[in-house]
Design a protein around this nucleic acid. Structure first.
Lengths: 338, 338
DNA sequence: CCTGGCACTCAGCGCGCACGAGTGCCAGCA
DNA sequence: TGCTGGCACTCGTGCGCGCTGAGTGCCAGG
């Protein structure tokens, strides 16, 4: 167990390193923080912290930098979430108000997050399966061609073309539309498969094939990993990563281009709502020198999707967490209003 | 006017420099190309080419590299468009087939282009105004709340919420839907404003306000710069830019995040279809060391949108132009089929 | 107009050296 | 037992130096 002062030393190291981006030495520490002890004592504490794996030196005769483990301790026990100031909150509201549709909301959110945190922002669209059906529309575009449009309560709209096995009359289409909507409007998309299972039975045999085709297309749109969409922004902030960064930035950009990786990245948000993954805690190799701060957001109580930022492990955790949380809350409100 | 051989020397310089990324000297040139003259002669030619501004040396006692003007001459007169090989064409087809909706088509196209050219790819969604109306749908979500859904023949779907000034009955809604569709289906979106101008007149006075609101929302979606959407990919390829690239990559990433800049970037495609902007020919400062190859694509004869790639001025122009053209053609086909 | 020869330039590289920030250890003191 | 000042040590960084070699421009001769 580390003494109170040693924790204080660790906190000071993290803060200084985040600020200066340079290894911090014992002398500098005592000058910048009122620790009440001499550099020599701090050196002893540092030696202990290094033994325990919380800090490391890049090379002998250099100052110390926090390790992933050090950041972890910092985040868990030494720092809180820094709340946004009133002007910042106003800026968030101002920036997000006036979005015309969901794409716009997500786009603005991404830019806002990137700007506030000066890092790379990732925003997931509200997941279909976790949303509620607001409406299902069927449009006849040709005798045997139907367009299926799904609308969620979060404003997300998905459409699919359906090539029917047989021509489908306008009356049958209206019938299907009505039955479908009466069954699933207001229900969660996740429940839709069960709710429509026996729907073809209600139709004449000649239409059954088409109805089944439409339904299977509907179900296909709900398949995980296909239905998920996301937007990223602020990649220009990657250039602030470090000096050696050709090697660092490359794998990060590559990782950011892979949907699957990104979805995993946002990962399981724990119950308190916010997740912080530090360095090697990220499964993906290319992201071993980055940290991810993510949080769920939603229109009501439960999260319909996640958003977060990706930045260097050397980031301002309290500030970033504060920004991410504030943005998520307000996006949730916006969605609830639409 | 430059002699035939001097043009040949310029071509050789461009080809070698693109291949090696290193300034090319007179000796190396005569070794790698059958110019039929000695290095000394080539040196004289180089001196002339340098006087004329087609090449430059980074510093004395280094080889020459092409200038923007040199690349321009190369593209205009010395090189053609390299056609795709059969396997490459097959790969394109394979990659793009099986997209489920427009987002998917655009997403696949971006990834494909980035992969083929090893550069940053930019794909614009089919512009609304240049597309044709396939269907307009109006959905009543609440007594005074309507969702407007626009569907184009290219598969693009846009939706907007409309808050009506007064409750709007189901019958009136159906009426508006029918009138609207009969007027504009099959017409170009650009013509819609004129076509719907007097539509409110056909309604009872109590509904006129709502109809006008719906129509104005419809027109808003057609406003330029709001209606344009695009997707980019392959930013990881930026890391292959050069050695000094922290300074190069930053402004490029920033430019890529700005819609407006990107839209201008794709720029006016000339009549032959393809546009190549080299270095300083790009208006945006951050892109002064990049070249942009873009082309229009469309389902029928005329272009509904553009796509292209952004890469270092030192790029394989014939190959890049070939890839861009081939992809654009096939995307056009895909859109026509949907 | 082309060619071989020649003197010249200069970026890159490796080397050695001095500097200084930062450390670990130890003896002394509260 | 824990803190402190002192001290020797380490090692990365920056600087100056000279060498090397690729590449050039120029010139005289064919």
């Amino acid at each position: 167990m580390l003494s109170e002062r040693r924790l204080e030393v660790l906190r000071a190291i993290v803060q200084d390193y985040v600020g200066t981006e340079e290894p911090v030495g014992s002398k500098a520490l005592t000058e910048r923080h009122r620790l009440g002890v001499s550099p020599a004592t701090v050196r002893n504490d540092m030696a202990v912290l290094e033994d325990e794996g919380y800090i490391a030196q890049p090379h002998t005769s250099a100052g110390r930098i926090p390790t992933d483990k050090g950041y972890r301790l910092f985040v868990d026990r030494l720092a809180g979430v820094k709340p946004m100031t009133a002007p910042e909150r106003r800026a968030i509201h101002h920036f997000l108000d006036g979005a015309v549709d969901l794409d716009d909301v997500v786009g603005r959110t991404v830019r806002l997050l990137a700007q506030l945190t000066r890092q790379v922002a990732v925003v997931q669209y509200p997941s279909l399966t976790r949303s509620t059906v607001r409406h299902v529309e069927l449009l006849s575009l040709a005798p045997a061609r139907v367009m299926l449009v799904l609308i969620t309560d979060t404003g997300r709209v998905e459409q699919r073309m359906v090539d029917c096995p047989a021509p489908f009359g306008e009356a049958s289409l209206a019938d299907l539309r009505a039955r479908l909507n009466s069954r699933i409007v207001g229900r969660r998309f996740a429940d839709v498969p069960q709710l429509v299972q026996d729907l073809p039975d209600a139709f004449e045999s000649e239409d059954r094939g088409t109805v089944a085709t439409v339904l299977s297309t509907l179900l296909e749109t709900l398949v995980e990993e296909t239905e998920e969409r996301l937007m990223i922004g602020g990649t220009a902030n990657l250039t602030r990563f470090g000096h050696d960064f050709p090697l660092t930035i490359r794998p990060v950009l590559e990782a950011l281009e892979e949907q699957v990786v990104l979805l995993k990245l946002l990962g399981e948000v724990n119950d308190s709502g916010m997740a912080v993954r530090i360095g090697h805690e990220n499964a993906h190799e290319g992201l071993n020198s980055t940290s991810v701060v993510s949080v769920g957001y939603g229109s009501g109580g439960e999260a319909v999707a996640k958003l977060g930022v990706v930045g260097p492990t050397r980031m301002d955790y309290p500030g970033t967490m504060g920004a991410v949380r504030a943005v998520a809350r307000y996006v949730g409100q916006i969605l609830a209003e639409s």
